[in-house]
Structures are given as structure tokens and as C-alpha cells.
Design a protein around this nucleic acid. Structure first.
Length: 138
DNA sequence: GCCAACGTTGGC
DNA sequence: GCCAACGTTGGC
């Protein structure tokens, strides 16, 4: 199957992009939401993932990729919850703010806008490429 | 700090 | 199985 595209949300106070880059990757744990979990389970190796800072910052800051597909979340008691491993690919030259995303009509369908509480969501290829371009990358 | 959106829990 | 109450997340 071909590559898929995702967006994950993280509070910069919890685990900022800068630390993600320093550590050259992390395991993406702590997801306790069925919809988000199902998305995690669907991720394949080398799928590309946009990294979004929620809270105060509210901007997409960089691109990551999946280095290990879903496995039981070591921080959960219940084995139904899963984690994946992600590694940084490239930082955006310019973070793309939520306000910009909202004002872009071609991005009005993404879950970030429509369902603000979802922490892991799929993106269409053209949506991913649009965001990438807005972030100053090809 | 407030509130909307959404999920979960528990009483019936 | 419905729904009210409550908790959490995240934008404003």
C-alpha cells in the first residue's frame, strides 16, 4: 500500500519539537482515545507525520516519519492501547499557524479544524503537501 | 478564565 | 439502551 499522511498533536510544554529533534525520535505513547488509537494502528513504516504544537503555540512545526508501527503502549495497563515510534525528518522553515490553516479553503476539511480534540488524524496527500509548502519546504 | 465539543460513567 | 452529570481537551 502507498504512503499515508498524518498529523499528531502535542503540547509544547509536554514534549516540544526541539526535544524530539535532540533525542532523534521518541515513542508516541499516552493515546487514550479510540479514534486516535485506530489511526495509530493504521500507521505504516515511513508514513509521514506532521507535528503540531497545541495550546499556546498552535502551529505545525515540522515533519516526522514512522519508524516502528503500533505496539502495546508500555505506559498503559490495558494492552489495547498502542504506541508507535517516530523520528524527526525536517523542521518547517516557518511554523504554520492554526489561523493560517483555518483561512486556507483547501484545508477546511482537515480534522484539526473540524474536530479540535482529536490528537492523531489522517491527512490527504494534497493537504500534507499544501501544509509542507506553507511551512517553506518542498 | 471561559466555554464548546466530545468522551465516559452511572442511574434508571 | 437512554440520558444527565461530569471530566478533559483545546481554542479563544
Amino acid at each position: 500500500m502507498s504512503k499515508q499522511y498524518w498529523l499528531v498533536k502535542q503540547e509544547p510544554e509536554g514534549y516540544p519539537w526541539s526535544r524530539f529533534v535532540e533525542e532523534k525520535g521518541t515513542f508516541w505513547d499516552g493515546v487514550r482515545n479510540y479514534q486516535a488509537r485506530n489511526h495509530l494502528r493504521t500507521m505504516k513504516k515511513n508514513d509521514l507525520v506532521l507535528y503540531y504544537h497545541s495550546g499556546k503555540e498552535r502551529a505545525v512545526v515540522g515533519i516526522a516519519r514512522v519508524t516502528r508501527t503500533a505496539y502495546p503502549d508500555p505506559t498503559a495497563d490495558d494492552p489495547q492501547w498502542v504506541a508507535v515510534d517516530l523520528a524527526p525528518v525536517k523542521a518547517f522553515k516557518k511554523p504554520v499557524a492554526l489561523a493560517e490553516i483555518k483561512s486556507e479553503s483547501s484545508l477546511s476539511n482537515i480534522a484539526l479544524v473540524r474536530q479540535s480534540r482529536l490528537s492523531v488524524m489522517p491527512l490527504e496527500k494534497q493537504e500534507f503537501e499544501k501544509l509542507q509548502k506553507m511551512g517553506g519546504l518542498q
